[in-house]
Amino acid sequence: MSKPCKLTDHSTGESLFMDEALEAIWELQEKSGTASFNDLINMMGHHSRLERMQKTGLFSLSGDAITLSEQGHARARDIIRRHRLAERLFADVLDIADYEDDACRLEHALSREAEEAICTLLGHPPRCPHDKEIPRGECCAVFTRKIKPLALNLREMEVGKEGRVLFINVPAMDRLANMGLVPGAIVRLHQKKPSYVVEVDQTTLALDEDIAQGIYVKQQG
């Protein structure tokens, strides 16, 4: 379960506070379709600050129900996207077990450029590690039309091509490492049928589709 980001010193700035509030509203709406102002207060505290936030025009209230304005929706969408991309980055690539706090910090710090670079590196992932949807960004829209993602798994890679391993996300990671299949290594995909066969340096390995799916490479040539 992803917990809402804790309000720490870094959230005291008004802009950061608003980011956290918008993120919470997005998650409430995602969970039950609508977001109640009472629930938001229960979740975050800071009643008066939330009341004040209404005046910014990021959201409006009809009774207890929150409606995000166009501007508010866009900003919430961005912050959620950055948070979930950060989660994927920490969980898959950097292999950090306890990534939630870092993801909370990173969501405020990423520029649009960095966000798109991470999204591309990860192969425009559709869902976060908690299986929630990652809102699509501009880079994802372009990707579906013409640009191939930077990170492909072996299933998506072309036979006969080489690629540099970016990250590996399978339970058998340690055994693969002992065979020389580690991030940074160059793999050549020899065949996909009847089983996957890859060459790493002078080692030839046969793999299941399940494992092949978890090995992400940057295809070369």
């Binding site: 399978v170 339970p171 058998a172 055994r175 030839t204 390995l205 046969a206 299941d208 399940d210 494992i211």
Partner: peptide, 9 residues
């Protein structure tokens, strides 16, 4: 169990 096997020459 997953299938992972080294293929010698």
């Amino acid at each position: 169990s997953d299938f992972m096997l080294e293929i010698p020459p």
